[in-house]
């Protein structure tokens, strides 16, 4: 069952045309050089931009999204932010995820490093049982140990039935779990 299907979809400013299908329980890794169109492809999949050429067929999906540059409201304590996100997505906090990512829950978001903010964005994207998780460079700004943790968490999510789409410069970290690899 296709969640999303792209046929020769692209933008005028890109030389690439994308043809791919994302199905239930897919773990798709997209890699490529800077400027190859990874983020544009994600934007088209998310529905944020429309292709100038080609077509996109999409089912009505709940998608969790972690952008490359995470911007969170700065003056909210981490726990309060996560509880708010859980409330609006009608979900609860996943204690396994919270303990694995080791976040300082009592601090305010503006006091956290880029890596920790990235983790918060990942936790909120996973809330509400999304059909598809779309992650743009989820490992940037994380240390080695945390990169492993994030890959493990995504693997666990994938086993729980969520489809995952990752755009990354480090595809080798995901290749053991990926069901498809698209190199641009």
């Amino acid at each position: 069952m296709n969640y999303i299907k792209l046929e020769e979809a692209g933008k005028r400013y890109l030389s690439h045309r994308f043809s791919l299908a994302i199905e239930k329980q897919d773990f798709l890794v997209i890699s490529g050089e800077n400027g190859s169109g990874k983020t544009t492809l994600l934007m088209m999949i998310l529905g944020f931009i429309r292709p100038d050429v080609g077509t996109i067929e999409k089912r009505k999906l709940k998608m969790g999204y972690v952008p490359e540059k995470v911007v969170l409201p700065p003056f909210i304590p981490v726990m309060e932010y996560l509880l708010t996100m859980a409330r609006i997505k009608k979900d609860t906090l996943d204690p396994h995820m919270l303990s694995a990512l080791d976040l300082p829950l009592d601090k305010s978001i503006h006091q956290l490093s880029k890596g920790n903010q990235q983790k918060i964005a990942l936790i909120s994207a996973c809330m509400g049982k999304p059909h598809l998780l779309v992650l743009d460079e989820p490992l940037s700004g994380l240390d080695e140990e945390m990169k492993e943790q994030v890959v493990e968490l995504l693997k666990r999510r994938h086993h729980m039935g969520t489809s995952i789409l990752v755009s990354t410069h480090e595809p080798e970290r995901f290749l053991h779990v990926a069901t498809k690899h698209l190199r641009l």
């Binding site: 944020f48 709940k62 998608m63 969790g64 999204y65 911007v71 969170l72 509400g128 999304p130």
Partner: peptide, 9 residues
């Protein structure tokens, strides 16, 4: 930008 990302969900 946070609200914009919620469009996806």
């Amino acid at each position: 930008p946070l609200i914009v990302t919620l469009n996806a969900y």
